[in-house]
Computed example of a mutant assay.
Amino acid sequence: MVVKAFSVDLNQPLVFQVGHLGDAYQEWVHQPIVSREGPRFFKSDFWEFLTRTAWWVIPLVWLPVVSWSILTTIQRGLSPSMAAYLALIGIFVWSLMEYSLHRFLFHIKTSSYWGNTLHYLLHGCHHKHPMDGYRLVFPPAATAILCIPFWSLVKSVVPYTAAPAVFGGGMLGYVMYDVTHYYLHHGRPSQTVAHNLKKYHLNHHFRNQTSGFGITSSLWDSVFGTLPPKKV
Score class of each variant (00 low, 15 high):
residue 82 M to V: 15
residue 83 A to S: 14
residue 84 A to I: 14
residue 85 Y to R: 09
residue 87 A to C: 07
residue 91 I to W: 11
residue 91 I to K: 03
residue 93 V to Q: 07
residue 93 V to K: 04
residue 94 W to S: 01
residue 95 S to M: 06
residue 95 S to H: 11
residue 96 L to Q: 07
residue 99 Y to C: 05
residue 99 Y to M: 09
residue 101 L to W: 09
residue 102 H to Y: 02
residue 103 R to V: 08
residue 103 R to Q: 08
residue 103 R to F: 03
residue 103 R to L: 03
residue 105 L to F: 15
residue 106 F to Q: 11
residue 106 F to E: 13
residue 109 K to S: 12
residue 110 T to W: 09
residue 111 S to G: 11
residue 111 S to N: 15
residue 113 Y to N: 11
residue 113 Y to M: 14
residue 114 W to A: 09
residue 115 G to S: 09
residue 115 G to D: 09
residue 116 N to H: 12
residue 117 T to R: 07
residue 117 T to Q: 08
residue 118 L to H: 02
residue 118 L to C: 12
residue 118 L to D: 07
residue 119 H to C: 05
residue 119 H to K: 12
residue 119 H to Y: 08
residue 120 Y to A: 08
residue 120 Y to C: 09
residue 121 L to K: 05
residue 121 L to A: 10
residue 123 H to F: 13
residue 123 H to A: 15
residue 125 C to P: 00
residue 126 H to D: 01
residue 128 K to L: 06
residue 128 K to D: 04
residue 130 P to R: 00
residue 130 P to F: 01
residue 131 M to P: 00
residue 133 G to I: 05
residue 134 Y to W: 13
residue 134 Y to K: 12
residue 134 Y to C: 06
residue 137 V to E: 03
residue 137 V to I: 03
residue 138 F to Y: 10
residue 138 F to G: 00
residue 138 F to K: 01
residue 139 P to V: 04
residue 141 A to M: 13
residue 144 A to I: 15
residue 146 L to W: 10
residue 146 L to K: 02
residue 146 L to I: 06
residue 148 I to K: 06
residue 149 P to S: 04
residue 149 P to W: 02
residue 150 F to N: 11
residue 150 F to L: 15
residue 151 W to K: 04
residue 152 S to F: 01
residue 152 S to M: 06
residue 152 S to C: 00
residue 154 V to K: 00
residue 155 K to H: 02
residue 155 K to R: 10
residue 156 S to W: 03
residue 156 S to L: 03
residue 156 S to G: 00
residue 157 V to Q: 06
residue 158 V to M: 10
residue 160 Y to M: 09
residue 160 Y to L: 13
residue 160 Y to D: 10
residue 162 A to F: 12
residue 163 A to I: 00
residue 164 P to R: 06
residue 165 A to W: 04
residue 166 V to N: 07
residue 166 V to K: 08
residue 167 F to G: 14
residue 167 F to Q: 11
residue 168 G to R: 04
residue 170 G to V: 07
residue 170 G to I: 02
residue 173 G to A: 08
residue 174 Y to I: 12
residue 175 V to E: 06
residue 178 D to H: 01
residue 180 T to F: 00
residue 182 Y to S: 03
residue 182 Y to W: 12
residue 184 L to Q: 13
residue 185 H to G: 06
residue 186 H to F: 14
residue 186 H to R: 10
residue 187 G to N: 09
residue 187 G to P: 10
residue 189 P to E: 14
